[in-house]
């Protein structure tokens, strides 16, 4: 099994629903965003770019590209970052030593660091008292490695897990199920009958920074230019 995702840029309306659901389902501390959506060519999201009279606007969601040849995993000195048997790149919050080599190594800048204790950060930014968000319990992989906890330890790296808490039970990642435009398709790239495989066969697609040889498992269907 090789879990992957196809993002149809024709359908994406740049609403950032996925950014928000990702953040809240995965209890990301203040300032940490696993999943970003921006308007290519523009300094501001939702601002058209291009030459006078020929403006256009499309959107590009970027989260962990789940590289098959993942530099973040190879550089990790203690094997805290690893790929599970479904091809998902994960971080063990209990093993990470906070060296941040993976942040320098990832070509997609998706890795986030817990610069401060998330509890303190939440207090400081003034979220309403008692406001708790995110999947409420910790998740361990079959080997007992801690890959999700709503209370992140300070000083460790984190990133998208393809919503391990859901996908390990056969459900969809939060960004996929919450996308109002159905721009995200999730599935097994090894299964020739899956929707992702069919789309990749039938439509032209690209991957980000393909020339680096990271072999991402997130594919994009290019937008039709209007």
């Amino acid at each position: 099994m090789r879990l992957g995702m196809v993002i149809d840029l024709d359908k994406c309306i740049g609403c950032r629903t996925c950014t928000v659901t990702c953040k809240s389902h995965n209890a990301q501390p203040p300032g940490i965003w696993w999943n970003r959506v921006f308007t290519p060519g523009s300094d501001f999201h939702q601002a058209a770019s291009g030459q006078e009279g020929h403006l256009q606007m499309s959107f590009l969601p970027v989260s962990c590209q789940m590289c098959d040849n993942a530099p973040c995993e190879k550089v990790c000195p203690v094997g805290a970052t690893y790929t599970d048997e479904r091809g998902v790149v994960l971080v063990d919050y209990e093993r990470c030593i906070g060296c941040r080599y993976c942040i320098a190594a990832c070509p997609y800048n998706v890795r986030q660091f817990n610069w401060e204790d998330p509890k303190k950060a939440k207090e400081r930014v003034g979220y309403e008292k008692g406001y708790e968000y995110g999947y409420p319990v910790e998740i361990r992989d079959p080997d007992g490695r801690l890959i999700y906890t709503p209370n992140r330890p300070v000083g460790v790296a984190e990133k998208c897990t393809f919503c391990f808490q859901y996908t390990s039970k056969g459900e969809l990642p939060a960004c996929v199920s919450s996308c109002p435009s159905k721009a995200r398709i999730f599935g097994d790239l090894d299964d020739q009958e899956s929707e992702v495989s069919t789309l990749l066969r039938d439509r032209s697609s690209f991957r980000l920074k393909e020339e680096l040889g990271t072999q991402p498992k997130v594919y994009y269907l290019p937008p039709n230019k209007q």
């Binding site: 203040p30 300032g31 940490i32 965003w33 970003r36 921006f38 290519p40 060519g41 590009l60 970027v62 997609y108 800048n109 986030q112 660091f113 610069w115 401060e116 950060a121 930014v125």
Partner: peptide, 12 residues
């Protein structure tokens, strides 16, 4: 060349 914005990691 258009650089994709990076999340700072801290909310201030």
């Amino acid at each position: 060349s258009w650089a994709y914005p990076i999340s700072v990691g801290v909310l201030r």
